[in-house]
């Protein structure tokens, strides 16, 4: 279901359809701790104001915006957003990846993790964030280039 199609849906449908996506987008931007708390805040506000929010053109994007706003306020001086997995975890995760993700801009982190990590399409990211598909593509390309540079990863490795 597209974000626009979620307009005027019952809140329960919205939670099932959009809730996980909003949470993942916020986790991708702000890490699991702040991201999940911000998603919870946003959904709580959405519950209270569903009569207003459900009529918006893009309710999921609007609620994501609430969550982003809350996350920015929660961040304060907390800078270590992305935790390091325990050693020996399967499947293997490049050890420097969490720190490298932390060097990306918020938009780059979001775009890279949602597309390359969670498997979203550029269009899905663009719809939620209410930006152009080309903008998402630019964030992904710059973010991936920066990650490769930070990690010393060969682009052609397969």
């Amino acid at each position: 279901m597209t974000d626009t199609a979620l307009a005027h849906q019952p809140f329960a449908t919205f939670v099932n359809e959009a809730g996980p996506r909003i949470r993942r987008a916020l986790v991708a931007a702000f890490g699991p701790e702040i991201g999940t708390e911000a998603a919870a805040d946003a959904m709580s506000i959405a519950w209270e104001r569903w009569d207003l929010i459900s009529g918006r053109e893009n309710p999921a994007g609007y609620v994501w915006g609430i969550g982003r706003n809350r996350a920015l306020k929660r961040m304060g001086r907390k800078r270590r957003l992305f935790p390091t997995p325990e050693p020996g975890r399967e499947p293997w995760i490049e050890p420097g990846l969490p720190a490298a993700i932390g060097t990306l801009s918020e938009k780059q982190r979001t775009a890279v993790l949602l597309t390359s990590g969670y498997g979203w399409t550029f269009r899905e990211v663009a719809e939620l964030m209410d930006v152009a598909v080309s903008t998402v593509q630019a964030h992904v390309e710059r973010g991936m280039a920066k990650l490769r540079n930070e990690l010393g990863v060969n682009d052609d490795e397969s």
């Binding site: 991708a28 975890r89 499947p91 490049e94 993790l113 990590g117 490769r148 990863v153 490795e157």
Partner: peptide
């Protein structure tokens, strides 16, 4: 790429 594999695994971790 190994980077994309790592990102996918890290997304699972998140």
């Amino acid at each position: 790429t190994s980077l994309e594999n790592s990102l996918r695994a890290y997304a699972e971790f998140l």
